[in-house]
């Protein structure tokens, strides 16, 4: 068969979020035939990071994969597909990932805030891609599916811990501050 593309839903081979030292913060690979073990995955990530951390060029071919990427401050977002995959589909998944993360982190797209909200980010990643199939590519829908209810929930029937957890979405300093306030508030009451 010539280079015709396989008619398949499985277009994504991997998604990764790395920090500014090339360490994995979160990564999912969906095809064991591309990287059989975590060792190969991490080796690939190191290599990928080396090739991409300086030049912000959006797309690179590496190890027979097409990788589209974006970075902000100290975070690098990657979406990988086979070398002949339609790059524009990959980019649409990448934009969704980036925009969803940005919305969840209230535009503070940084390692610190990402780790503080790691649980929500994991859920978002799970909503974007399921086993290599792009599940949702609209960042608004993704954000809604992972976090909308929390904002809607009325304050008064939540415990203090939950309120603090919600505040974790902002920076740590703000969290400490608000935790103190919440405590004071509940004591005064």
């Amino acid at each position: 068969m010539s280079g015709l593309l396989e008619p398949t839903l499985y277009v994504i081979k991997g998604i990764a979020i790395l920090d500014n030292d090339g360490n994995r913060l979160l990564a999912k690979y969906y095809d064991p035939s591309v990287f059989p073990t975590v060792k190969e995955e991490k080796k690939f990530e190191k290599n990928l990071f080396q090739k991409t951390h300086r030049a912000n060029a959006e797309v690179i071919m590496l190890d027979r994969l097409t990788c589209v990427y974006r970075s902000n401050v100290d975070l690098f977002f990657y979406v990988m597909g086979l070398s002949h995959e339609n790059e524009l589909i990959l980019v649409s998944v990448l934009s969704c990932l980036y925009d969803a993360v940005s919305a969840i982190l209230r535009k503070n797209v940084e390692k610190r805030t990402l780790l503080d909200n790691l649980d929500i980010i994991m859920l978002a990643l799970d909503e974007i891609c399921d086993g290599g199939v792009p599940l949702e590519t609209d960042p608004q829908v993704v954000t809604q599916r992972v976090s909308l209810r929390m904002e809607e929930s009325p304050f008064n029937d939540q415990t203090v811990t939950q309120q603090v957890r919600q505040k974790l979405e902002t920076t740590t300093g703000a969290v400490l501050q608000s935790a103190r306030e919440q405590l004071k508030w509940s004591l005064l009451k």
Binding site: A57, E58, V59, V68, N86, E87, L88, L90, V91
Partner: peptide, 8 residues
Amino acid sequence: PKPTLRFA
């Protein structure tokens, strides 16, 4: 202007 489009 989009690099990915040029690349593709």
